[in-house]
Nucleic acid binder design. Structure first.
Lengths: 341, 341
DNA sequence: AATAATTTGAGGTACGTACCTCATTCTCCG
DNA sequence: CGGAGAATGAGGTACGTACCTCAAATTATT
């Protein structure tokens, strides 16, 4: 049987009340007594029973999760992943209010953040681009004593407590290292496509990609980023033009969305020597594209881990508990056909 | 406030005892009444409070984890990872008995398994090679009603409940796909090294590797596996001989251990065009080898996830609860310098 | 209609911890 | 040495669920 607080009290020769004071850092205990209790705790190998503690504390965690909503596949995967987490969260005394906000609508985002009932929320997790108004809203939340975690995209210049996601510069470096090694040592060209370079994520990935290519694969020319603004027609026109003009494009790097249109358009060009293509994020489309070979590798992050980690962190932060950083580190994953599960 | 059992009782117009009978599948409730209660549960969105339930049930999970012990780096990482899990497990009402068994000692292994106190254990997780005696021991454990999970290496022909780890054939395929793409299209040769091909893991990886190379990269010749039996001198002699005899070795694939000696020996050969090297498992050495470029990619699995997943599964199994398979899937990870964290 | 069997209700205790109050004992200081 | 203030003890309740017993009500069977 595992030792309980009473066992410690007995072992330390003090009363239950004193053990309780020590365990919960309440004042009014002499240093010597604290030591006696601490020693007994170690001697017996006591570990606080979290179930009982949570029950007694009557603690429920009220979290709000703000995510973008659009017809973008990645956003839908995010939503799906979160939905899958809800049942587990509920049985862990965690009430989650899911707040989807139209993507690319800074106004709606800020309204949602400001509309949060500060008195009834312990933590907020949000996946959103950083803007001055968002910074203000986060500062406001922090002042109200609410834990804030950035999900997937960091909000580095805000007062957020934690970022749960990958380092996008490193993700870009990974893409660069991979593509650099896939291409042989002949001079060649890489086409880069993004939805918009306004996005920190894309900018950081590009930065990492460029630095690796410049350093380790100088024979590769990385073309300026083409911004599609999520218009399939743009993609088609730009890509067609690029492949017509340059015959040595041997790699394609997609920084963000638009992979479906991109794949289609490249396959329509019927190029003899299909260029290597690397994209980010596992979605229904990138999965099937890995399967049929139109994408060669996907750099991704495990959204399930991100969400579960975010919930753990928000709970811990709102209890001012510390976390195990190694357990919360999100890996940059490389998925190819062979390790697609 | 979240609804409790009393709320349901009230809502359904029955007593607490009846709600309890329904919730815990106890007999003696009419079908109509069960329906009334079920409806109230759904109406109120009741979710059983696991903390309180576990507390009341007085449930503690007693698990035994059997792992190999040797001076092998991977084994030490396994041990380290488990040690890190212990505190968390303890506060989740889980008592873990850690049983390190000398690696390559089937006798000690079986003794340990047979020595487990069947009356006082709910689950066993083990990382061990499959032998007839192990099969028998596992059958025995299962007959005693104990949950059994295979860790890292599967025990496919036993009565284990679950395997927590990666598919090694797929891991080998991943290595093959990666190395195949790293090498250009000139005919070349790949050297393959393993500790011993008696190990299922190595055999499966080799199988996957070969199939991808044969199918997608037919210009690459995969040499017969060299077995080092963990003797650095063997490695040195064999590798030196191979590189002397064949000048077109452009890739090295290490299926299991011995990476330290292998790296050293290859760098000592001072080959102009350093061969690409792929290994398995992140360890202190493979990490630093990725850093300094002597290894180009490591195929690995997140041991932290494996262990936490194993604990969740053993708890669930010993409660006859079902698990969320997608949450327990272990990914085959590709680590290169750029995504080494 | 009487009896048996089944279903339901009422009320209790227990789990381990948190948190509260109030009385008592100790310690330190003047 | 006496008194103030701090430290400690004793005892209580609460959290939400599990599990128990026994009585009462309802239904089924004869």
């Amino acid at each position: 049987m595992r030792p309980t607080t009473s066992d410690i009290a007995h072992e330390a020769g003090v009363s239950l009340a004193t053990v309780d004071r020590v365990l919960n850092d309440r004042p009014g205990v002499r240093a010597v007594t604290v030591e006696k209790v601490r020693a007994a705790i170690i001697r017996l190998g006591y570990v606080r029973d979290l179930s009982a503690a949570n029950l007694a504390r009557q603690r429920t965690y009220r979290l709000a999760i703000v995510i973008p909503e659009s017809n973008n596949e990645f956003h839908q995967v995010v939503r799906q992943t979160l939905d899958d987490c809800l049942p587990t969260a509920l049985s862990e005394r965690t009430d989650i209010e899911l707040l989807p906000v139209p993507a690319h609508d800074p106004h709606a985002l800020v309204n949602t953040l400001n509309g949060l009932d500060r008195a009834n929320i312990d933590g907020v997790g949000l996946m959103a681009p950083e803007t001055p108004l968002v910074r203000d809203a986060i500062r406001d939340l922090k002042h109200a004593g609410i834990a804030v975690a950035a999900l997937v995209s960091d909000l580095p210049n805000t007062e957020r407590d934690f970022f749960v996601g990958i380092n996008n510069v490193a993700a870009g470096r990974t893409a660069g290292e991979l593509l650099g090694r896939f291409l042989n040592s002949d001079p060649s060209r890489v086409l880069v496509l993004a939805s918009s370079m306004q996005s920190y994520d894309s900018a950081e990935r590009r930065l990492g990609f460029d630095s690796v290519i410049a350093q380790e694969f100088p024979h590769i020319t990385v073309m300026p980023t083409m911004e599609s603004h999520d218009e399939p027609e743009n993609i088609e026109a730009m890509v067609k033009r690029a492949f017509t003009r340059y015959t040595d494009i041997r790699g394609v790097y997609s920084l963000s969305t638009g992979n479906r249109a991109l794949s289609r358009c490249i396959s329509n060009l019927h190029i003899d020597d299909k260029p290597y293509m690397i994209a980010h994020e596992l979605t229904p489309h990138t999965r099937s594209a890995l399967q049929d070979g139109s994408i060669d590798a996907v750099i991704t992050q495990d959204l399930g881990h991100i969400m579960r980690s975010a919930l753990r962190i928000l709970r811990a932060k709102s209890d001012a508990m510390d976390i195990v950083p190694s357990q919360e580190r999100i890996r940059i994953e490389i998925i190819m056909r062979a390790n697609l599960i």
